[in-house]
Each structure stands twice: as C-alpha cells, then as structure tokens.
Simulated scan of single mutants.
Amino acid sequence: MTDLTHLNQEGEAHMVDVGDKAHSSRTAIAESCIKMLPATLEMILSGDAKKGDVIGTARLAGIMAAKKTSDLIPLCHPLALTKVEIRLEADAALPGIRIQALAKVNGQTGVEMEALTAASVAALTIYDMAKAVDRAMEIGPTRLLKKSGGKSGEWSAS
C-alpha cells in the first residue's frame, strides 16, 4: 500500500519488527530553539528565575525525556540508550536558547526520536520555568541535524 514502514498492507499502524536487524552503533543529534525577550534570557542566565536553575532543570528534563520516548511516541521501540547529552547555549541573535540533544545506542533501530524528544522537552521545560515573565516565548524550529549508523548510514541536514 505504501512505503511507510509503520503501516501494514491494510494501512493500519503497527510497530516495525526489528528483530532480524543487525546491532550497530547509532547516533542522532537534534536541535530546538526557544525564542524569548532579551530580559527573559538575562533572567535565566543570571539564575534569577523564581522556579530555580532553568538551564540545569532543562538539561535533566531532556535526558529523562529521551529515556521515556517509547512511552510517549506510540510506535517507538524501547531502547537501552548508552548516552544522552543536552547542550544549551544562549543566543543573543534569537534572542533565546539553542538546545542540542545527542542520543546514542548500540541496537537494532535508530535514536532520532529520542534526540528529537529530548530537545523538545528541554525547550518545553524552559518555557514552563519562565512563562510567568514571558508567555510569548516561541519554540522552534525543532529538527534532526544528524544521524549515523544502521542500514541507511550517515545523514546530515543541509
């Protein structure tokens, strides 16, 4: 019916069987941005947010989210992640914060969704912790930057 792997012959959603696929080292890097008022960025960077350490909390939330991806995205396989790293950098040009999430696994399926989920949840956590002073914050774009491993090999965004 289609080339989409998550649809069967009848067009119904199903979880792909990866049991016969070879194990390989797989990595994915995703990013998200959260734009905000310059004063909000300064508040976060100075550590003056009433809810506490925004950057540290967002980093932990991203790591936790990567580990819970299969609980959130219906057809994702649970993975034994070997590494999750969240980098948050202030960007005055946005103004806001750029988030990069790296996920690694030695397994039979990729970690793109884990990296994307981690970046997204880190951005949402920043929003939650700073919304009292800036409800107009904007999240996005969120996108995959790079992936490696598996049958399809290397891929990088242009």
Rank of each mutant, 00 (worst) to 15 (best):
L75G: 06
G62N: 02
Q108V: 12
D71N: 11
E85N: 11
C76Y: 00
K50N: 11
A101P: 03
A123V: 06
A118D: 02
L94Q: 10
H77F: 02
R87C: 13
A28M: 07
L94R: 12
V121F: 06
K51T: 08
Q100H: 12
I97A: 06
L41K: 07
L37F: 13
L88C: 04
C33A: 15
A61Y: 05
L81T: 01
A66K: 07
L102Q: 08
M64H: 10
P78D: 10
A130W: 07
M43P: 06
K35T: 13
E89F: 11
L102E: 10
H77T: 03
M64Q: 13
L45N: 15
A49Y: 03
A93M: 13
P74T: 08
A80H: 14
A39K: 15
D53F: 04
R87I: 13
L81Y: 01
I73M: 01
K131G: 11
A119F: 03
S120T: 12
T117E: 00
D53S: 05
Q108R: 14
K35Q: 14
G96H: 11
T109M: 00
A122K: 02
I29S: 04
A61G: 10
A115E: 02
G62T: 01
L94A: 09
L60C: 14
A115H: 02
A58M: 12
K51D: 06
V54G: 00
V54R: 00
Y127M: 05
C76G: 00
I126T: 10
T69K: 01
A30E: 00
E31Q: 12
D134T: 05
A103Y: 07
A90T: 05
A28Q: 06
L94P: 05
E31R: 11
C33F: 15
V133R: 07
A66S: 11
K50T: 12
L37K: 15
T125G: 04
A130T: 14
E89S: 14
V121N: 03
Q100G: 06
V111M: 02
G107D: 07
R98P: 08
M36V: 09
L102P: 04
Q100V: 08
M43R: 09
A132V: 12
